[in-house]
């Protein structure tokens, strides 16, 4: 019995924010992504499912790595990106977040 009473009081005081009538606001973070050739394609194709944080966090990588990521987005996550755009994005990523190695 004791337990239930404690619980009910806890219920009324512990209510924080998620349950108020207005919605929770998650801040927008302006990730500083580099401008460069092909950027508008990246912006159109790579922001649908997640922030640029995912891209920046990988650090400088090879062309093969970036091609692999673009392929993964298309094959595993079904990103609607055509071959032409995929190549533009790969080039953008390698030019701006590349390590100079092809492999």
């Amino acid at each position: 019995m004791m337990k239930k009473i404690i619980l009910l009081t806890a219920l009324s005081i512990s209510a924080l924010f998620a349950q108020v009538k207005s919605s929770v606001e998650v801040p927008y973070i302006p990730f500083e992504i580099k401008m460069g050739k092909g950027f508008s394609t990246v912006q159109a194709d790579c922001l649908m499912c997640h922030s640029f944080g995912y891209i920046i966090n990988q650090g400088p990588q090879s062309r093969k790595f970036w091609r692999g990521k673009v392929d993964k987005m298309i094959e595993e996550f079904k990103a609607p990106i055509d071959k032409k755009d995929a190549k533009i994005i790969e080039n953008y990523l390698f030019e701006n977040y590349g390590n100079g190695k092809e492999q």
Partner: peptide, 21 residues
């Protein structure tokens, strides 16, 4: 840690806002 705090959180190391990481 980031300079931005997320709901009910203190500023933490932030990898993404959408989805939050």
């Amino acid at each position: 840690v980031s300079k931005y705090a997320f709901p009910e959180k203190r500023p933490l190391i932030t990898y993404s806002d959408r989805p939050p990481l």
